[in-house]
């Protein structure tokens, strides 16, 4: 029971991370969604938890669009351009971290659902509410963006050498 719960929570955390691309925000999103699921007596299922996380993420996203907010802890930290991406987001591969950071939330979400969770385009359509064609083209464009980012970084590294 507790093992399956731990697995479910890890899936939820990764999904929240794909949306927010920020470890602390992902933890907060997961916590909010998890408490809501339990209080509603909802099933301990991945689909249900993902749905709760997703709705919270987009609510937050809309609110941040309306009222720009700057986290308090970001005031003393250096700007994004100068920091090490790996350190900020705890990403192991800085190139992939950089590439993912340049994607929109929906792009990372679609990519995550496809590449990590193994959902089909139709299933992603159901989860995200996007058209199937949109999902397919978004997946294709997102993969290209990441490859482009990789190749650009490699070129930069080679030129440094």
């Amino acid at each position: 029971m507790s093992e399956s719960l731990a697995i479910l929570l890890q899936h939820g955390y990764r999904y929240a991370l794909s949306l927010s691309h920020h470890a602390a925000k992902a933890e907060d999103l997961l916590q909010d969604a998890w408490v809501a699921v339990i209080q509603a007596g909802g099933p301990h299922e991945k689909g249900y938890l993902f749905c709760a996380i997703r709705s919270r993420y987009y609510n937050l996203y809309k609110r941040e669009l309306l009222v720009p907010m700057e986290p308090l802890d970001s005031i003393t930290e250096p700007s994004y351009d100068t920091i090490d991406v790996n350190q900020e987001h705890e990403f192991d591969d800085p190139r992939l971290g950089m590439a993912l950071s340049q994607l929109r939330g929906i792009e990372r979400e679609v990519l995550y659902l496809s590449a990590v969770e193994g959902y089909t385009a139709q299933e992603i359509t159901t989860i995200t509410g996007q058209e199937r064609g949109t999902v397919l083209s978004m997946l294709s464009r997102t993969r290209k963006k990441i490859q482009h980012c990789f190749s650009a970084n490699e070129t930069r590294v080679m030129s440094h050498e």
Partner: peptide, 19 residues
């Protein structure tokens, strides 16, 4: 690319304390 992304995300785990 998918494999790299999968490996990347699967390395991410919720801290034990938070879990």
């Amino acid at each position: 690319t998918d494999k790299a992304i999968k490996d990347h995300y699967q390395k991410k785990v919720l801290p034990a304390e938070k879990l």
